[in-house]
Amino acid sequence: MPCTGQREREMTAVVELEAGGAKLGLMPDVGGSIAFWRCGEMDLLRPVSDPHLIAQHGRAVAGYPLVPFSNRVAGDHFRFEGVDYHLAPSFGGENCAIHGNGWQRRWGLDRLANSSATLTLDHAPTRDLMGQWPFSYRAQLRYDLRENGLSIGILLENTDTRDQPVGMGFHPYFPRHAGLKLGFAASSVWTNGPDHLPALRVPVEGEWSFAHMRDAGQEPIDNCYAGWSGSAFLRWPREGYALTVEGSPELRHLVLFTPPGQPYIGLEPVSNMTDGFNRPIIADSGVRVLAPGQKMEGHIRMTVTRC
C-alpha cells in the first residue's frame, strides 16, 4: 500500500503540454484544473490556493472548469419542475454551494498529445455524491495549447433519465502585476447584496464600465456582467504582454473578481448568471434545460501578443 506522501504526490501529478516556447500544466486529479500556463518568461495565469474551496485541500490552481453551473446557488437550494433540491455547501465560510462539482472531482485523462489533452468526468448522484449534484451527467474538457495561445472546450451531456438545468464556464486566475489594464464591453451588471447574490441589475456605466481599457485597480469587485460581447482584453505594460479572451456565444456572462490586496484577479466567461437556478423569470439568466441525451458546449480562446 502506498504511503501518505506517495498518495499525495500521485494526486497532484501534473501533466505538461508544450507548444513552441509555451508550457501548460494540468492536474486531472484536482478538478481537471490548470496548474500553470507560461509563455516565454511570462506566467499568464497565477496559481492560487483558496482555503474557501474546500475540496481543493489547499492545492494551488491557476484555473478550473465550472460544471454543471457557475457561481453560487442561494441557500444551497433550488426548485426545478416542482421538485426541491438541496446541495451540500462547498465554499468555506458561507452556507453556499459554488461553481458546480467538476472542480471537486478527479477527471480521467482520455487523450494526450504534445500540445493537447482531453479530460472526462462521469457524475452519478450516488448516496455520497447526491449533495454535489442530484442529476447524472458526463463532461468533457479539452485543452489545446498553441505557441501564442490556449483554447479550452467544455462539453456537458445529460446522461440522466430526467431533464436537468445546467450552466458552465471557466475560472482562470490572472496575475495582478502593477499597471494591469482591463477592458471589455457588456450591457448590464448585477449588484450584490450582503450575501454576495444578485440584488439589482444596472447599466454598465461609470465605475462599472471597462468599455475603455483602464487599470484593474484595487477596488473589490465580485460581480456578474450580462450581455458580454464575448471579448475581453488584459494588458501588462511593464511585462510587455497582452491577452485577448474570447468566449463562444453560449458564454455571454462574465464574472469579474478583484479581491483587494491579492496578486490576482478572476475573469470568468460563463453561461449562467449567479443563482440563475433560482431566477426562472429572468429570460437571459443563461440557465439551459437539457433533456436526456442532450448536450451543451462552450469554448474559450485566449491569445497572447507582445506589446
Score class of each variant (00 low, 15 high):
residue 111 R to Y: 11
residue 112 L to Y: 13
residue 112 L to W: 09
residue 113 A to T: 15
residue 114 N to W: 03
residue 115 S to I: 02
residue 117 A to N: 08
residue 117 A to R: 05
residue 118 T to C: 11
residue 118 T to L: 14
residue 119 L to P: 01
residue 119 L to D: 01
residue 121 L to N: 04
residue 121 L to I: 09
residue 121 L to G: 02
residue 122 D to E: 15
residue 123 H to F: 13
residue 125 P to W: 11
residue 126 T to F: 05
residue 126 T to A: 10
residue 126 T to V: 07
residue 128 D to Y: 12
residue 129 L to V: 01
residue 130 M to P: 00
residue 130 M to L: 15
residue 131 G to C: 09
residue 131 G to L: 10
residue 132 Q to L: 14
residue 132 Q to Y: 15
residue 133 W to L: 06
residue 133 W to V: 02
residue 134 P to Q: 06
residue 134 P to A: 06
residue 134 P to S: 05
residue 135 F to D: 09
residue 135 F to G: 11
residue 136 S to I: 05
residue 136 S to M: 09
residue 141 L to N: 02
residue 141 L to M: 10
residue 144 D to P: 00
residue 146 R to N: 07
residue 146 R to I: 00
residue 146 R to Q: 14
residue 147 E to H: 08
residue 148 N to Q: 14
residue 150 L to N: 14
residue 152 I to T: 09
residue 153 G to L: 05
residue 153 G to A: 10
residue 153 G to I: 00
residue 154 I to E: 13
residue 154 I to R: 06
residue 155 L to K: 13
residue 157 E to G: 05
residue 158 N to W: 03
residue 158 N to Y: 09
residue 159 T to Y: 06
residue 159 T to A: 11
residue 160 D to F: 04
residue 160 D to M: 08
residue 161 T to E: 11
residue 161 T to L: 09
residue 161 T to M: 06
residue 162 R to P: 03
residue 163 D to I: 02
residue 163 D to M: 12
residue 164 Q to C: 14
residue 165 P to R: 03
residue 165 P to K: 07
residue 165 P to A: 09
residue 166 V to D: 01
residue 167 G to C: 11
residue 167 G to L: 09
residue 170 F to I: 04
residue 170 F to L: 07
residue 171 H to A: 12
residue 171 H to T: 08
residue 172 P to D: 11
residue 173 Y to H: 12
residue 173 Y to C: 07
residue 174 F to L: 07
residue 175 P to L: 11
residue 176 R to S: 05
residue 177 H to S: 05
residue 177 H to Y: 10
residue 177 H to E: 12
residue 177 H to G: 08
residue 177 H to K: 04
residue 177 H to F: 06
residue 178 A to D: 12
residue 178 A to C: 01
residue 179 G to Q: 13
residue 179 G to E: 11
residue 179 G to T: 12
residue 180 L to G: 02
residue 180 L to E: 08
residue 181 K to C: 05
residue 182 L to I: 01
residue 182 L to E: 10
residue 182 L to Y: 04
residue 183 G to P: 00
residue 183 G to Y: 00
residue 184 F to W: 04
residue 184 F to R: 00
residue 184 F to A: 02
residue 186 A to C: 04
residue 186 A to L: 02
residue 188 S to R: 09
residue 188 S to Y: 03
residue 189 V to F: 01
residue 189 V to E: 06
residue 189 V to S: 02
residue 189 V to M: 08
residue 190 W to T: 01
residue 191 T to I: 12
residue 191 T to Q: 14
residue 192 N to L: 15
residue 192 N to K: 04
residue 192 N to Y: 00
residue 193 G to M: 08
residue 194 P to E: 15
residue 194 P to S: 15
residue 194 P to D: 15
residue 195 D to Q: 11
residue 197 L to M: 14
residue 197 L to W: 07
residue 199 A to L: 15
residue 201 R to Y: 04
residue 201 R to T: 03
residue 203 P to Q: 03
residue 203 P to N: 03
residue 204 V to K: 01
residue 204 V to E: 04
residue 205 E to D: 13
residue 206 G to S: 07
residue 206 G to C: 04
residue 207 E to D: 14
residue 207 E to H: 10
residue 208 W to N: 06
residue 208 W to T: 03
residue 209 S to G: 05
residue 209 S to W: 07
residue 210 F to Q: 08
residue 210 F to N: 00
residue 212 H to R: 12
residue 213 M to E: 15
residue 215 D to I: 03
residue 216 A to M: 07
residue 216 A to N: 01
residue 217 G to N: 04
residue 217 G to Q: 02
residue 217 G to V: 02
